[in-house]
Design a protein around this nucleic acid. Structure first.
Lengths: 373, 373
DNA sequence: CTGAAAGCGCTAACAC
DNA sequence: GTGTTAGCGCTTTCAG
């Protein structure tokens, strides 16, 4: 890693001015072919790679957009991985017998992974580089601020930053808020039909499957998604003049283990509801786990439904009825919204709400044929 | 988005010089508390966010590291997603009945997702921001070069860039090559025990399960992983003086559909091998799909094994025996390697080889109890 | 402990 | 078409 060549080196090598080098790289057509080729040759020969920092500073845009979200705190306490000396570590392979029923903390991130993939994909299509930042604990504000300083625009997953912080950052770069309720109407906002989805699913359970006693398993308190889904559930009941409590009576924490716990609790009681409607798939899978242990047949004795449409729900037994969120689309649309604002800074803020899909599978109705491939 | 405040604004507001502002932000302890507080107050009041570009240019490091890999070309042809006018789009929810057996192209990315997560996690721990770039088609070189210009160090997944390109980039920023065979010994390199893992698994099939006729299903031609795994398979046979062809006779393309195709082909022949060893999990799952259709019992009539340890293999029926790669760890260790080189630029290049785990499940031995939770 | 001043490498007017 | 030049906003000696 010798000192990398700069525009000056290239210019000198090619016998042109630095402006010409810059042009060749940004608008090649404005340069005479002969000159251009000469410059390009020098670029190749010297192995010139333009400095993004200098470019960003001078041009006042970086070509980078950022995606920020709040990580799970559980990830904080990870041990170090030994780098073992300076030379080749051992490698090797050992054999283990896998016992079913491992914990599934990894799966918790599936949601982000898909959103991220959508962002990544669309960023590429739009010609942006994507800077990914995860806030954790106390450094979150620092992280997001730092990101704001290096990108042309920032996508923030709802709940990852306070409104004040967002207001502050939005003075600096355009912000797109992803998911969650819209706050104010000055920021662009892309969300998902949480309430509608839950309402449609609940309506289906009541109207089409004749379910009357429904239990609801809420997720973490304070989650905007959780609140919206709960409101959709209540709305479906209210529409049909069925009773629903003010607040959810059962609450997990969006994890499978939380679902199991709630399930156990539920099965200790006398009698069963006809259906357990869960605020996400993880918890629904946990409830199904608990049902199996308690000897409760799903869906014959108990219908269980989730929300999100994660893969594990497609692969479970029984497969999980759920509301599929367009997670990848969420990411893609957010990038598009950002790109649009970057192109047209003074358009009024927009709010896009993406449709969801209620996906019926065997955890709600045995009628769906289980013809595996 | 009014013009954001700069150091000058803050300095003026606080009645100090820009140098002091800079110090307060980088080494607060070098500044008298009273001054510091005054500056901090101004920072807060003005909503100052330092420019990453200017900072990077002046300091000659950006605090950003990059992760680059080659995307799947299939992702190229994605349609546009309508942004529907400027106002709130409709949202809503529709109901669909999910038929099992959807295609699983999404799953193809699982590998990257996990590596990415590891990188992301460790980047955060090390105080770096992570720039993610995916090369696709012809723009790949452009993309990776652009990234190299904006980061302090770059991680490149094997096969995503040519050796010449890597050599060129490595003049500019430190490069860590992830996975794949080590090329030369001038670049840091983190890999996984592909050959060892496949060899151990194959040895187990032969020695412990008494399998003699083994078929191998290779992945895409030219993949370094594929080559290494194949060599591990051959080595296990050779150790036991069993015949193995020079080149794999069956080849898929690392997709489930490819596995199905190979499976169908296999089941048209007379007689069955005792085991089909696949170069990755996706193909193994495809072979199992085909076996089910052909009425071949796994593992009684046919043992099927995979490689990677993706979730789908844990959730399939029967669950898949495989070699689990430490994908998240791969990401984490790569970041650590990069951080180490950034801290000590002239250390000799290192090569870390991460161990894998042979995971026995029911696709190879019915003896593993299937006590679901 | 604080300030002055010299760049960092590039882009974008504006001349020629 | 191509060259000159003035910054972009910050870090970092070096003085004081």
């Amino acid at each position: 890693m010798t000192k990398p060549p700069t525009v000056y080196d290239v210019a000198h090598h090619a016998g042109v001015s630095i402006a010409t080098v810059s042009r060749v790289l940004s608008r090649p057509d404005d340069v005479k072919p002969a000159t251009r080729d000469r410059v390009l040759a020098s670029v190749g020969e010297l192995g010139y790679v333009p400095s993004g920092a200098a470019r960003g500073l001078a041009a006042r845009r970086t070509g980078v957009i950022g995606l920020f979200f709040q990580g799970l705190d559980a990830m904080d306490d990870l041990g170090d991985i030994a780098l073992e000396g300076d030379e080749a570590a051992a490698g090797g392979a050992r054999i283990v017998r896998d016992i079913p029923e491992r914990t599934d903390t990894r799966t918790l991130n599936l949601y982000f992974d898909e959103v991220l993939r959508g962002c990544e994909l669309e960023s590429w299509r739009s010609g942006f580089a994507l800077l990914v930042g995860v806030g954790r604990g106390s450094t979150a504000t620092q992280t997001v601020r730092d990101m704001a300083g290096r990108v042309d625009g920032l996508m923030v997953l709802a709940g990852s930053a306070s409104e004040e912080e967002l207001a502050r950052l939005s003075r600096h770069v355009p912000i797109v808020v992803m998911a969650g309720p819209r706050r104010g109407d000055d920021l662009d906002h892309v969300s998902v039909s949480n309430a509608e989805g839950m309402r449609t699913l609940t309506a289906h359970l009541i109207d089409d499957l004749g379910a009357r006693e429904l239990e609801y398993v809420a997720g973490s308190l304070g989650s905007p998604d959780d609140a919206e889904r709960w409101s959709g559930f209540r709305a479906a009941l209210a529409d049909r003049s069925l009773e629903a409590p003010e607040e959810p009576t059962l609450r997990g924490d969006f994890t499978r283990e939380g679902g199991r716990r709630v399930g156990r609790e539920l099965f200790r009681r006398d009698g069963l509801p006809r259906a357990v409607v869960c605020a996400n798939d993880q918890m629904a899978l946990g409830v199904i786990d608990a049902a199996r242990i308690a000897g409760v047949a799903v869906p014959e004795e108990l219908i269980v439904t989730g929300f999100d449409g994660i893969d594990a729900g497609r692969l479970s037994a029984p497969r999980l009825t759920t509301v599929r969120q367009p997670m990848e689309t969420l990411g893609r649309v957010s990038v598009q919204a950002l790109a649009r604002r970057l192109a047209e800074p003074k358009l009024p803020a927009m709010s896009v709400r993406l449709p969801v899909e209620v996906v019926l599978r065997e955890s709600s109705e045995s009628s769906v044929s289980v013809s595996l491939p």
